[in-house]
Design a protein around this nucleic acid. Structure first.
Lengths: 109, 109
DNA sequence: TGTATTTATTGTATGTTTGCGATAAAACAA
DNA sequence: TTGTTTTATCGCAAACATACAATAAATACA
């Protein structure tokens, strides 16, 4: 109990869920939007932009990084984070494909 | 602790997170895909399609219904669920808007 | 070397999600 | 009415997610 039964679902279904989970917290949405807004990439002032504690932000960044949506490069004592454009594109293809399912056939009771 | 600090974020950011949460579980992805696949709408055989127990499916359906993505109409002893096309469209606009942020400006270190 | 700055990690408390057995509720059939 | 079918709800256990204080690790600078 309590654990998701991933084995019941297709790889694609699990992949969609994994991507969606990245966006399922407003802090991660805010981080991603901030990284898009700053056309050059930005470091730890994400912490002051979003109002959460530094370890919390660091943890959210780690999750986004592990999914491949962002990448971070060390610059001295700070780390520069930015959108991973290739992986973002791939994610967008998967998610858009899911969202774009044909509504015209839906014929409801 | 442990609770999401929604008050730190914009309504839009919270809305995106709320929609994303609907897709953040493969069972809900599978349910939605199934409802799209059956061009007429389908009742409780979602339970046999997805391999989870009936109360578990019922709970996932409730979450999707509360978000407005699906609607259910009672038909005798069974309930007929289907995609709520209007609300799905609205959701799609919000999510696509988020996913379509301009990548060309991302200029990374 | 020591100190400051920045980020990552660890540990822990708390809240949320998932899953299901048991059971209730509602509609139908005999 | 009684039994059957179908779905929803309740209640619980396990797992997972969120948040942050404390602290470690890494680099820069004096």
């Amino acid at each position: 109990m309590g654990a998701v039964k991933n084995e019941l679902f297709t790889d694609r279904q699990n992949e969609i869920a994994r991507f969606a989970k990245a966006f399922a917290h407003p802090a991660r949405v805010a981080i991603l939007q901030y990284l898009f807004r700053m056309d050059a990439c930005v470091c730890g002032d994400i912490v002051s932009e979003v109002g959460l504690a530094q370890p919390t932000i660091s943890q959210h960044l780690k999750e986004l990084r592990q999914l491949g949506l962002i990448k971070g490069t060390v610059e001295g004592t700070s780390v520069c984070y930015c959108i991973d454009t290739d992986d973002w594109g791939e994610m967008k293809t998967v998610m858009t494909d899911f969202l774009d399912q044909d509504l015209s056939a839906v014929d409801c009771c």
